[in-house]
Computed example of a mutant assay.
Amino acid sequence: MEFYSERLNYRYFTEQDFELFRSVFSDEKVMKYAWIDKIDKDDDMALFFNDFLNHGNELNSNSSYAFAVFVRENERFAGFADIVINCRNPNGGCGEIGYFLLPEHWGKGYATELSETLVKTGFTRLGLHKMSARCNSKNLKSESVMKKVGMIKEGELRKVRFKNGSWDDEKHYGILIEDWKCDKQ
């Protein structure tokens, strides 16, 4: 499965992408606000990586889709993006987007571009009626991205992320398909 946005290409991770995957999830800067700590051990990384391999070729009834993200201009690996389906029925469903970009790709608008693409994919290709995202409450840049793609704050969970020896709060944002369609007109 491959698709693209204005400046980025997206494709499923393959077994040959282990080192690319490792470059994201072992980077301390990338994982600073993540829901997990950076992964240092090869065995732990391999188990985690295998959970994100897509074994189908198209978007279908899977519960999650993980994508390797590349800059279209030079085909450099930029990071990880995913859509997780939280629930689904014949009338729609709810999905959550997530991403991690390598530091050399920060501050270029890629996070907003890929978030817009993931939201659009959830609505137009997966038939979902709601897309959401969440972030560590200290991650103001990620919160800004959620706002830029039209999501509204739906709540904040207190002390649910354990990072660096303390508990952090988590902000939740979401957008409904009808609001997304209105924004596109």
Rank of each mutant, 00 (worst) to 15 (best):
E15L: 12
G122D: 04
P90N: 04
F67K: 03
F52Y: 14
I152F: 09
A34G: 02
L176G: 07
Y33L: 03
S61P: 00
F25H: 11
E178G: 01
I97G: 04
A34F: 07
Y110C: 03
Y99M: 01
K38C: 04
N91R: 13
R11P: 09
S61A: 11
E154M: 09
S142E: 00
K148W: 00
F3N: 08
T112E: 09
E143R: 10
L102T: 03
N54R: 10
R161M: 14
H172L: 15
N9Y: 12
Y33D: 03
G98W: 00
V119D: 03
A78E: 07
R134L: 00
E116L: 11
K120S: 05
E170M: 08
L114C: 02
H55Y: 11
F48L: 08
F49M: 04
E2S: 13
T14Y: 12
S5V: 04
E28Q: 13
I85R: 05
N74E: 13
E178H: 09
S61D: 15
I85Q: 08
L20G: 02
D17A: 09
R125T: 05
S5F: 04
N50Q: 14
F70D: 01
S137L: 07
T121R: 07
R88N: 07
N9P: 01
G165C: 11
E28L: 14
K138S: 10
E96F: 00
M45L: 15
F162Q: 12
T117I: 07
L59S: 10
M131F: 08
K29S: 13
N136T: 01
F13Y: 13
L114K: 01
K184V: 02
L101Y: 01
K120A: 12
D183R: 12
P90L: 02
V69R: 05
W35I: 11
R134P: 00
N62W: 08
N91V: 11
C94H: 07
Y99D: 00
W35K: 04
G92W: 02
L140I: 13
N54D: 11
E170S: 04
S5N: 04
R11I: 09
E96C: 07
N60V: 03
N57W: 06
N164G: 12
W180A: 06
P90R: 02
S142H: 00
S132A: 13
K108S: 06
T121H: 04
F123P: 05
K153W: 05
L114A: 03
F48I: 03
F25G: 02
F48M: 11
D179R: 09
P103T: 07
I36F: 14
E19V: 10
R76M: 12
N164D: 13
W106C: 00
I97M: 13
Y10C: 10
K148F: 00
G150T: 06
M151A: 09
Y33G: 02
E75C: 10
A81Q: 06
L128K: 07
R72L: 04
E116F: 03
